[in-house]
């Protein structure tokens, strides 16, 4: 019963979130100087005034915003997400095509930043106050404060241009047909953007894990473990990981929002054909249907991250188990 109630609540929460996000995005676009007509026909169009009137009437741009929003929302729910002006394709197709690239990129970056950040954080906590700790701390703070696009440009100019180790951009080699592209090609093209994207998360996770483990190390049960003859290694293995992994994973899931924000920049720098570069292009081109579609998708994505964190917590944390 409680489980059913929890699920019901979750669905309700997702629905209210989606409604709120779509209304807010719509309002923001409404208030912005984006003019769908100009975006569609271009600024130096030679179209006659009558033809323009025709388009405006066809799109219903003269109607009040509420009517337009409801019309869009109704179509959206029925599966018609509109046509992307930038890509001249249905929004759904654009998002579907690009989402798989972005998901792979985000997953790689997410795993990379999680594993690396956690390891660094644990190491720093064990060596608290020593040189290793100071180096990791400084490094993490620097990484956390550096803008993603700047890091991306640095990586690009150093690893791709100077050293020539990685491709300069795109998700597949140029001049190859889709059938010729191998999995390794895709991975090879993904490494640099993924590393760039993970930079932000690595520092954050490292600092958080460090803080958490230091807190745990000062707990009485660590003292007791030492009194019972456990070595530092045994303490890390038996108590450290057990008590820090859950919080770290939770924070990692909660970082989905930053991950999504990060791809907009990272993908643009590396001309990576994912959601992020589509978002940038849609923003620059005043592509209202695509912007709205991506906004709703990003809300679902971030919500899923937070939900995963919550569920994992309920499953893995014995003290919370009684509430499920």
């Amino acid at each position: 019963m409680t489980r059913l109630k929890y699920m019901g609540k979750t669905v309700l929460r997702l629905l209210t979130l989606l409604i709120a996000v779509s209304i807010l995005s719509f309002l923001l676009l409404e208030a912005s100087p984006v003019d769908p007509l100009t975006a569609y026909i271009g600024t130096d169009s030679t179209l006659s005034e009558e033809a323009k009137e025709e388009i405006i009437r066809h799109w219903g741009l003269k109607e009040p915003p509420v009517t337009r929003f409801l019309k869009w929302a109704g179509n959206f729910v029925c599966g018609d997400w509109g046509e992307s002006i930038t890509y001249k394709k249905p929004v759904k197709t654009v998002i579907a095509e690009r989402l798989k690239y972005s998901l792979a990129l985000m997953l790689a970056a997410w795993l990379f930043s999680g594993i690396l950040g956690y390891a660094f954080g644990m190491l720093a906590a064990v060596r608290q106050g020593k040189l290793t700790d100071k180096v990791i701390k400084t490094f993490s703070l620097t990484l956390q404060s550096a803008p993603v696009f700047w890091i991306g440009l640095l990586f690009l100019s150093f690893f791709a241009v100077r050293l020539g180790w990685f491709p300069i951009g795109l998700a597949t080699p140029m001049g190859k047909t889709a059938e010729e592209v191998t999995v390794f090609d895709r991975i090879y093209h993904m490494i640099l953007p993924a590393v760039t994207l993970s930079v932000l998360g690595t520092g954050k996770t490292a600092l958080y894990t460090r803080q958490k483990f230091i807190e745990i190390l000062n707990k009485e049960f660590i003292l007791y473990a030492r009194a019972r003859g456990e070595s530092t290694g045994q303490i890390i293995w038996r108590h450290g990981i057990r008590n820090t992994l859950m919080p770290a994973v939770t924070v990692q899931f909660a970082s989905f929002s930053e991950l999504f924000g990060g791809i907009a920049l990272a993908e643009s720098v590396f001309s990576y054909p994912g959601i992020g570069s589509a978002l940038t292009a849609a923003g620059l081109g005043g592509d209202v249907p695509l912007l709205l579609g991506i906004a709703v998708c990003s809300a679902v994505f971030v919500f899923a991250g937070n939900l995963a964190a919550n569920l994992l917590y309920l499953v893995l944390e014995p003290r919370a188990g009684s509430f499920v």
């Binding site: 707990k219 009485e220 007791y224 473990a225 009194a227 108590h239």
Partner: peptide, 10 residues
């Protein structure tokens, strides 16, 4: 030790 606080809660 004094209390249950000296046991690993997890």
């Amino acid at each position: 030790p004094q209390s249950v606080d000296y046991l690993d809660p997890l």
